[in-house]
């Protein structure tokens, strides 16, 4: 996972133990994720017992169990992992880029931008579906990203001003989504998608998001040192060097691609991008951006997989959209984090 040279310079402790402290959280999160994915594959509407689910997963005998695991449970688990990683990394980069603890694809209206474009297309060309929705999702996300980018670099918009702009955009775009749904009489059909849901997961959706996750995460890890500059450089008007400007452009593109592809397959799932970066920053170890990114790539999926599991269990056999669960978990824990942050 994390290469040794990315570790923060050891403080007083010997290099070896610093290294262990670095890897520890990642290993713990990875173990949690593995457990979560296994649980996710074992739990579902048809109550497959653990042994049969494992059998279905590993024995390719063409049985109904095997088909169920392969058609429904596995793509869902994989999709949840990818969406979680995308949103958490997008949140981390957005927060680093704008040096704003409130930044996330959701609070900056990027999720909502993608949603509007998707609903617009879904209403106008209902047959498109699937991979076709990625293009409008990017267009919507990019448009909002451009507005926020303009606001954040064009001058003296304060943190508060930027947050206001984000809140405004989100409200406007959400209203547009509601208007489109009400006008086209499709509210009932879209309630689940609107809340953010992985119920409709299948391999085609995995194929839609996977390239973006892989490429963007690779870029984050490779360009981590440069992206890290954004943390140091104060992002105000004239002080942007040519190089930093290019890095900031790259970072913005990453946020749009990561968030846009996530919304295209699962709808606007909130709060993952906001809280996961805050949580991983509190884990022991240095604050190097690449390391945080790796933690987000594992931590985001942990949160989303657990939320999806909870959503499938609480109202059994009906399902709750995962976006509702993340909001129910995310909102209070964010308040908690804010309170703790203040007390330090």
């Amino acid at each position: 996972m994390s290469t040794p040279d990315t570790a923060a310079p050891p403080r007083s402790a010997p290099a070896r133990s610093a290294h262990a402290a670095d890897l520890g959280p990642i290993l713990v999160l990875t173990a949690l994720l593995a457990a979560g994915v296994v649980a996710s594959v074992c739990v579902g509407a048809s109550g497959l017992p653990f042994a049969r689910a494992v059998h279905g997963l590993f024995v390719w005998d063409g049985s109904a169990d095997h088909a169920l695991v392969l058609d429904v449970r596995l793509p869902r688990a994989v999709l949840t992992v990818l969406v979680g990683a995308n949103l958490a990394v997008a949140g981390l980069i957005a927060q680093t880029l704008t040096r704003n603890p409130l930044a996330s694809p959701q609070t900056f209206g990027i999720n909502a931008g993608a949603s509007v474009a998707i609903v617009l297309v879904a209403v106008a060309l209902p047959s498109l579906g699937g991979a076709g929705l990625v293009v409008p999702a990017f267009a919507g996300a990019a448009a909002v990203g451009a507005i926020m980018w303009f606001l954040s670099v064009s001058g003296a918009v304060t943190t508060v001003g930027l947050a206001l702009a984000g809140v405004t955009l989100q409200l406007v775009l959400t209203a547009l989504v509601q208007a489109l749904l009400i006008m086209s009489n499709t509210t009932q059909d879209m309630v689940f998608w609107l809340a953010g849901s992985v119920t409709g997961a299948d391999w085609s959706k995995v194929a839609v998001i996977l390239p973006f996750t892989l490429v963007c995460c690779a870029v984050v890890l490779l360009a981590g040192r440069h992206l890290g500059l954004l943390q140091l450089d104060v992002m105000t008007g004239g002080s942007l060097g040519q190089n930093t400007r290019r890095v900031a452009g790259l970072a913005s593109a990453l946020v749009v691609l990561l968030a846009g592809s996530a919304v295209a397959v699962s709808g606007p799932v909130g709060f993952v991008g906001l809280i996961v970066p805050h949580i991983v920053r509190r884990l022991p170890g240095g604050g190097d951006l690449r390391r945080l990114a790796v933690l987000c790539m594992v931590g985001g999926p942990v949160l989303l997989v657990c939320a999806d599991l909870a959503g499938r269990v609480v109202a059994f056999p009906q399902e709750l959209p995962v976006g509702i669960v993340t909001a129910l978990i995310g909102a209070p824990s964010f308040v908690f984090l804010a309170v703790r942050q203040r007390h330090r």
């Binding site: 509407a45 048809s46 169920l68 058609d71 429904v72 849901s197 009906q318």
Partner: peptide
């Protein structure tokens, strides 16, 4: 009505 049923629910 029961809404939001996934493939697994229909199969069950």
């Amino acid at each position: 009505q029961e809404s939001g049923a996934g493939l697994e629910r229909v199969a069950a």
